[in-house]
């Protein structure tokens, strides 16, 4: 009887934790939306995304990102994140603000190709920022037989 009481007590605690988690998730999403609204004004906002075109060709280790030769972010990928990218996930690598005009984006990709070769490649992309949010999607690909990494850029305006 005591064990049953303890179990029901614990499950009610779990239910309360679940309810609280739902409230906190909603609240954190609101705070996040407010942050985005305040910190990244729409006219100057630039966001950089990364996706994979071919799951098998490259095992992504890390990406370093530079805007106008200044390092802005670096990310080391976990197994879980690699799997998600392989299934169509898109990673928001960077979000920041830039003035209108010409800019340069440099990405340094560290990966292991399907032929077990470790590769480190620098890719530079020049773009023009115009009023309004600019979203840059980098898509990483590598084709047989040499599995040389290629990056294509799509600008979503």
């Amino acid at each position: 009887m005591a064990a049953m009481a303890a179990t029901s007590h614990s499950s009610s605690l779990d239910e309360q934790i679940e309810r609280l988690n739902a409230d906190i998730t909603r609240h954190t999403a609101s705070v996040h939306a407010l942050e985005q609204k305040l910190l990244h004004p729409v006219n100057t906002r630039v966001a950089v995304f990364l996706s994979l075109a071919n799951r098998q060709a490259l095992e992504l280790d890390s990406v370093e990102l530079f805007v106008n030769e200044q390092p802005v972010t670096a990310h080391l990928y976990t197994e879980n994140e690699r799997n998600s990218l392989g299934q169509g996930g898109v990673h928001q690598l960077f979000i920041g603000n830039l003035a209108d005009g010409k800019h340069s984006l440099k990405a340094v990709i560290n990966a292991r190709a399907a032929n077990n070769r470790f590769v480190r490649r620098e890719i530079v992309h020049d773009f023009r920022k115009q009023p309004g949010t600019l979203r840059l999607q980098m898509t990483l690909n590598a084709k047989a037989p040499d599995y040389e990494p290629e990056v294509s850029f799509v600008e979503w305006k």
Binding site: F49, S51, T78, N80, E81, N83, S84, L85, Q87, G88, G89, V90, H91, Q92
Partner: peptide, 10 residues
């Protein structure tokens, strides 16, 4: 859609 998938998986 891609961003949501990545966030859910991680």
């Amino acid at each position: 859609t891609g961003v949501v998938r990545f966030a859910l998986d991680t």
